[in-house]
Amino acid sequence: MTIPSRAGLGLKAQHYDVILDTRPDVGWFEVHAENYMGAGGPPHHYLTRIRRDYPLSLHGVGLSIGGAQPLDEAHLARLRDLAERYEPGLVSEHLAWSTHDDIYLNDLLPLPYTDEAVMRVSDHLDRMQQVLRRQVLLENPSTYVAFENSALSEIDFLQAVAKQSGCGLLLDVNNVLVSATNQGYSAEAYIDAFPLDLVGEIHLGGHATEREATGGTLLIDAHDRAVDDQVWALYARTLARGGAKPSLIEWDNDLPAWETLYAETLTAERFIAAQVFCGPKDPAPLPRTQHAVAR
């Protein structure tokens, strides 16, 4: 089942029952692949039932696409098995690394934007797409540090990898704001330069704001709250140029009541509708007003 250009929601175990009992009008759901890599049990029981009624997107968080070392073939096989079982409309992973030697570090770690890294990431995506026999989307990261030896911009890096591997891109608009703020560049300029024709999915999430000892602002990609107004504005800017895309609300920590989460998808759908009906000239006024009411 293909993923429609509507709002989707990150699926959480806490909401299995409400989804199956009320069948809410949500365009699609996304799961973290690694949460469904047990052999059986309740996770598969519920996902199987939800998958019967909704398109599903599979989002990997642990393959370490950006690792200098070869991909973990056993993990790739688990991902392939899961994709065969649930036939997701989209499969995505991160521009990041998370394993070194045989230790899994459980975080999406940043890469230097070098030619060597372009080669590694492209080779790994090649392998992943070959095993899964489909195109994969690669997500732009949220970063807190950059590397001295980075020679390419993030966008040039992503474009080079997409060109070499044939992968698509997943544009996380919250990550754009987090990285732009932390690295001191313009989030708007980043969105304006992003190759939106390669984008198969958009992510929207909440971030935390911290004050650095040095006086600067540090944004943390926390996924623990509602989408920030600045992120909605960047989202509208993205839609205005790139048109409607499948758009995911990510809320992974400090989960709110179902109604709050559902309201976030309605807000995203208003932005999409405004784009479809008002056209690219005037994306903002309608959704922003209604967004305030939805809160």
């Binding site: 200098a68 690394w97 230097p112 060597e116 040095t214 600067g216």
Partner: peptide
């Protein structure tokens, strides 16, 4: 210029040991 493998090795070591300074490969203010 460090290889990707060396850069990640140093980063991973500092990640796991809070007694180490942040890796020398990261830029400027961090």
């Amino acid at each position: 210029m460090p290889s990707l493998a060396d850069l990640q090795g140093g980063f991973a070591a500092a990640l796991r040991d809070a007694g180490l300074p942040p890796p020398a490969t990261i830029a400027g203010q961090a």
